[in-house]
Design a protein around this nucleic acid. Structure first.
Length: 542
RNA sequence: GCCCUUGUAGUGAAAUGGAUAUCACGACAGGCUUCGAACCUGUUAUUGGGGGUUCGAAUCCCUCCAAGGGCACCA
């Protein structure tokens, strides 16, 4: 990885242990990579009198010049084509052709494993829970956002070397209010849930519901059917494959909920008020205490959810747990966090539990907002949207923006726009790669490829862009940020289209053609990986 | 009232405190005898207002304005 090599060189030179940055500057006149190390050092020297005397009184430009000199006298000499110092103290790097050509060889050698790494030790076991939609109806567009986000984040973390479990929490507990409400609907005694196909599902269930009078049981039965449909849709329609479907009801069955309540009582964290059992969450950072068991004797959602998270941390021993929730649940975070803290989950800090909130999506149709309500039965489901716009386009559109953007989705433009969705731009680049490779039936010996012939601006730009893949994976994984990858795929496509426009492959001089075909192969490898990670299909033709 | 999130070209978005704010769509002006033009090249914003911190702010702090969400013995 080129970037980390620059890091290493800089660390050798500066000795101080400080946070420095190496980045790809937006403007190419500032080099292939750039670092603010001198600026950071100067700031530090000004604030901290104990620091290395050599630095005292020097301005960033002087420090940058010294680092440049030191780098130039090291082996780094062959690594960089040029190093420049720029105001107010940046050091800009140009990578030598040789290094880039070697990196290309590396990609061709490692193929689909290029950029993969293995994370060892304590923090490597990650559980990531997402969608977890209530089995009371079809998935919403908001579920889709969280779903694609979680799926791709999990893919990235896996690729970056973590052991990842993608998990869906099925809220099928007979004791829960919504399941009971659903049960009423199933038994024809309520009509809160008026979603598509619901009547049909109930009709099909007919026999099984006959002798049931218990709302919880009836609701659970109906929920299971709805869940079957949702699962099928998630796997086939959304192309998201969960490693585990975790049933809330199972926590009741195996006694985990009861056991937890006992433990809380034993730890003197529970008291009674108004006939209900309350937990002293306020003592652990929540705004107020919370009900665990209602006056009716039924547990709230909170109690089994704590049991669930206890299962994640203690039973299954995940070292990193990530929950992805819609914005309408964000207020719940302090409660759960307080609960887990009370259970001594966070003895080594609460960083092992991360909640990512995805903001809601606003649907616009003909200039007006379409209110999404499950209750009136007129909402647009995720299924509808994907049928209209297509899975690849929907996925990519959602993945391009940050989870906390309040996205506007214009349905009137959706279809029209879908044809111009950026995903097609990326797919087209991959199709072009495939097209060239299909047409070129040229035979050449791999060992004799002259990679040093790849020396035009376009050749080198493309290689540099390909080499960024491994850096982007790392960045996306470290920041839990899938959109970095989606954006990168656009960058790569742009660089490739530029290359394609300006350089010929077929018809070039024999040795150059062979080298360029290898370059195209490498590009295809990276695209393939990108599409796999993003869950987007890689068409051969468009 | 309190809490969370957001405010960036006509539109939708991007930018771990870095340099001349990036991308797509739309609009306008150009580009195919040759690997697929679903492509390429231009033009289109002083980042909601006002203060502050910093060598350096879309990003951090304060304040005002605006939008979305949450404040259940629902999940």
């Amino acid at each position: 990885m080129i970037k980390s090599k620059i890091f290493d060189y800089l660390k050798k030179v500066i000795k101080e242990k400080i946070e420095i940055e190496v980045f790809v500057p937006e403007n190419e006149q500032f080099g292939h990579y750039s670092s603010n190390v001198a600026l950071k050092l100067a700031t530090l020297a000004r604030k901290n009198a104990d620091l290395n005397a050599e630095l005292r009184g020097k301005n960033p430009m002087q420090i940058a010049e010294e680092i440049k000199t030191a780098l130039s006298s090291m082996i780094a000499r062959d690594f960089f084509e040029k190093i420049e110092v720029a105001t107010p103290g940046f050091i800009n790097f140009w990578i030598s052709e040789k290094v880039l050509q070697d990196e290309l060889k590396e990609i061709l050698k490692k193929k689909q494993n290029y950029g993969k790494s293995a994370v060892r030790g304590q923090m490597s076991k990650v559980q990531i829970e997402f969608i977890s939609a209530n089995p009371t109806g079809q998935l919403t567009i908001g579920n889709g956002r969280g779903g694609f986000f979680g799926d791709v984040l999990a893919n990235i973390l896996k690729f970056a070397g973590y052991k990842v479990v993608k998990e869906y929490y099925v809220n099928d507990a007979k004791a829960s209010t919504q399941i009971k409400e659903l049960g009423k609907t199933a038994l024809g005694e309520g009509n809160i849930y008026k979603t598509k196909n619901l009547e049909l599902i109930i009709k099909n269930l007919g026999e099984k519901l006959k002798n049931i009078t218990d709302y919880g049981k009836a609701g659970n039965l109906l929920a299971r059917e709805i869940q079957k449909d949702n699962k099928k849709f998630i796997e086939k329609g959304l192309k998201i494959n969960f490693d585990k479907w975790f049933s809330e009801e199972s926590l009741y069955k195996n006694g985990a909920v009861e056991k937890l309540l006992d433990e809380l009582k034993r730890k003197n964290l529970v008291y009674e008020k108004g006939g209900a059992l309350w937990m002293k969450t306020k003592d652990f950072g929540d705004n107020e205490d919370r009900v665990l068991v209602r006056a009716s004797g039924e547990p709230t959602y909170f109690l089994p959810d704590m049991a669930y998270h206890l299962n994640k941390f203690k039973t299954r021993k995940f070292t990193q747990v990530i929950d992805i929730w819609g914005a309408d649940h964000h207020g719940y975070e302090p409660r759960l966090r307080a609960g887990l803290k009370a259970l001594s989950i966070f003895e080594n800090g609460d960083g092992k539990f991360k909640v990512i909130i995805t903001q809601l999506i606003r649907l616009i149709k003909e200039g007006k907002e379409v209110k999404m309500s499950k209750r009136n039965g007129e909402f647009i489901t995720l299924d509808d949207l994907i049928k209209e716009v297509g899975l690849d386009a929907t996925r990519f559109f959602f993945l391009m923006s940050s989870s906390d953007t309040h996205m506007n989705f214009d349905l009137s433009l959706a279809k029209e726009r879908s044809m111009k969705n950026p995903v097609y731009y990326v797919q087209y680049a991959a199709v072009r790669c495939g097209g060239i490779l299909r047409k070129s039936n040229v035979k050449y010996q791999k060992s004799r490829i002259k990679f040093d012939l790849l020396s035009t601006n376009e050749d080198l730009n493309l290689i540099r862009q390909l080499a960024r893949f491994s850096e982007v994976i790392k960045e996306a994984a470290n920041n839990y940020n899938p959109q970095i990858l989606a954006r990168y795929s656009l960058d790569l496509a742009k660089t490739f289209h530029n290359f394609y426009e300006k350089e010929r492959i077929m018809g070039a001089e024999e040795n150059l053609m062979a080298a360029r075909l290898e370059l195209i192969k490498a590009t295809q490898v990276i695209f393939k990986n990108l599409f796999g990670l993003l869950g987007v299909s890689m068409p051969k033709k468009m």
